[in-house]
Write a protein that binds this DNA or RNA. Structure first.
Lengths: 146, 146
DNA sequence: TATATTTTGAGAATGTTTCTCATTCTCATC
DNA sequence: GATGAGAATGAGAAACATTCTCAAAATATA
């Protein structure tokens, strides 16, 4: 066994082809810093690669999910949003009025997960706490009217 | 002013027309006891009313939401599920393998909500904790294979 | 380089949800 | 019970996100 057998594979793509499209999409996802939809990603990518297909965007997102590179989230909308997984675990507050997304984290979440694991023997792979309401500003504006 | 002016309005429908379709749909929702999709609701209603339209199902669900009669939930799938609001506030665990839905509740949720209200001044209208993973049975079966 | 395998683009197809509009129903009033 | 105004319905078209298909192109491997 020689060092030739120690192949330096692309650690991110785990043996899957590294195409220009995939590099581009990952780059955009990284720079966008979270909460980007498939369509936004497509539009953004189109600016740098005229011919990229929406199907490729979806296929790549699927792949990135499998490779644990991105996280898929449904923030109340009809469609999903995606973000790179490196970002710390956090949850979302969405304002029903202005659509603003507030991220937050809480130790209570961790405690809840542990409690559930214990009580139901559930092996968790995804936790998503979605909360909807009115942010400080919108609530204030509404109270001016009412 | 006589007693004639004290009109006995339908308390559920709050002045909105009480149609046979709406009665039917509410009845099915009540009897189904939670987690029914628009399509299932439509199929179920079709059995009792041949000509009911899918559009009516969606319109009615929209109305029921507005009247606070039903609650809309997105349990990870592409579509929504609906349930009558009378059921106690609870959250969901969904098994990725068998699709089973486990409902649960925890005082930690309430504490979390209060903490958030305090910290961000967010006026909450909807809380949805969605957790995905493998239930006890499926996790056991998987470990037999692996 | 040659070959086998993956991936892509384009558009069709799918599935859920919303819209449109002519027709029908409901409800308050007579 | 009949009437009229406004609300609700059915059917299908439309809109929306997402997935599929397949020939052509790119990539990885020997």
């Amino acid at each position: 066994m020689t060092t030739r057998n120690i192949r330096k594979t692309n650690n991110e793509m785990k043996g899957r082809a590294v195409t220009s499209q995939r590099k581009l999409l990952l780059d955009i996802l990284r720079k966008s810093g979270g909460h980007i939809s498939a369509k936004e990603l497509y539009r953004s990518a189109s600016r740098r690669n005229e011919s990229i297909s929406l199907a490729t965007v979806y296929r790549s997102l699927q792949l990135f999910k499998e490779l644990d590179l991105v996280e898929e989230r449904r923030l109340g909308q009809v469609f999903c949003t995606y973000e790179m997984k490196e970002s710390a675990e956090h949850q979302h507050l969405v304002c029903r009025s202005c659509g603003k997304v507030i991220e937050f984290e809480s130790p209570l979440i961790r405690r809840l997960v542990e409690a559930l694991k214990h009580e139901h023997g559930f092996n968790l792979t995804k936790i998503e706490l979605y909360m909807e309401g009115y942010c400080k500003e919108c609530a204030k504006n509404a109270s001016d009217i009412v």
